[in-house]
Design a protein around this nucleic acid. Sequence first.
DNA 1: CGCGACTCCTGCCGGC
DNA 2: TGCCGGCAGGAGTCGC
Length: 270
Amino acid sequence: MPELPEVETSRRGIAPFLEGQAITRIVIRDRRLRWPVEPGFERKLTGTTIESVDRRAKYLLIRTGRGSVILHLGMSGHVHIVDTGTPAGVHDHVDIELASGKALRLRDPRRFGSLHFSATPLEHPLLAALGPEPLGPDFSGRHLWERSRGRRVAVKQFVMTPQVVVGVGNIYASESLFLAGIHPKRAAGRIAEARYERLADAVRTVLKKAIRAGGTTLRDFYGGDGEAGYFKQELAVYDREDLPCVNCGDPVRADVIGQRMSYYCVRCQT
DNA sequence: CGCGACTCCTGCCGGC
DNA sequence: TGCCGGCAGGAGTCGC
């Protein structure tokens, strides 16, 4: 669920409920996330007022007068707005209760997500070394080309590295490489700058499209329907093993690259 | 430093 | 129908 588009969709969904609200109480039912939630987390935030909800990479940043909540949803995390006092499910680990009577609730069955507090979140060790935002001004084919010189890893793994560029997860790596016509196993250091320009364009195109589809997901999300994937219909290769390539009709291949399942067209991607 | 393997955890799906 | 193995949209960490 939490690809960059879904995190961005969540941000847009929750921000109106949070901004300007005082935090009245924080309830943590299970501190065992990817890293244990630090003692004193609640104390540092209770009584402060939320100024904005931002996003950096796949991290949500809830900014308050005293510092920021740094929230990562991992593989299975969701945030949603509930009325304070709504009974919590087994995997509803954290509530941030607001003066309005609403609460931000974090649900994360696999507990791969994380929750931190920092006065200077962009300098936090988890965020300090991150690469550029794919939809921001610092991301380009030139950037990918420069960073990939001398690298022998498969380009798919390269483009999924958060220190290279953030927000390109397993789905969008496959989709972007298909759109750019680049074979996912090709060594990152052996791809010309012009092809990286095409890849950068493809990443931007795919992510923007997914964010638009994510807007639709949001309604389902709040309706408690889960994220019945409307953007799933738009996927060209991901999860389409043996189905015809939308471009040439050859069967889509599925293959493990760097311990992650990958999908591509042998004829269209070189 | 780069790279590949491993790790955390639960839910769900397909196959038998 | 029920059980079981395998796999899942992330990414830090470790050993070489």
